[in-house]
C-alpha cells in the first residue's frame, strides 16, 4: 500500500483516538449501573430522576463523541 508517513500517522492516530470511545462506554455504563442500583434500592424515587440519568449519560457520552470526532478529523481532515 503506497502512501506517505503522514497519512499512516493520521490513520494510527485515528485508531488510537477510538480508544476514547471505550472510556465513554465505561462512563455511560457506570452512570446507568449506579442509577439502576439506586433505583432498585428506592424504586419510588427512580421515576423522578430519569431526566438526571439522561443528562449524566449525555455528559459522559459527549466525551466519547469528542474522541470519535478526533478520529474523523484525523481520517478526513488532516
Amino acid at each position: 500500500m503506497e502512501g506517505d508517513i503522514v497519512q499512516m500517522g493520521a490513520y494510527i492516530g485515528a485508531g488510537l483516538a477510538c480508544t476514547g470511545m471505550g472510556g465513554a462506554a465505561l462512563g455511560v455504563g457506570h452512570v446507568a449501573g449506579n442509577f439502576l442500583s439506586g433505583a432498585l434500592r428506592n424504586p419510588s424515587a427512580a421515576a423522578g430522576q430519569t431526566a438526571t440519568l439522561f443528562i449524566g449519560i449525555a455528559f459522559a457520552e459527549a466525551l466519547g463523541i469528542f474522541s470519535f470526532l478526533v478520529a474523523l478529523l484525523l481520517m478526513f481532515a488532516v
Binding site: M1, G3, L72, L73, M75, F76, A77
Partner: peptide, 18 residues
C-alpha cells in the same frame, strides 16, 4: 477493504461536515 477505505476517502476529500 483496506484499499477501499482509502478509496472512499479519495471520493470524498475531507469530511462533508467540515
Amino acid at each position: 477493504e483496506t484499499h477501499n477505505a482509502a478509496d472512499a476517502a479519495a471520493s470524498a476529500p475531507g469530511l462533508p461536515q467540515l
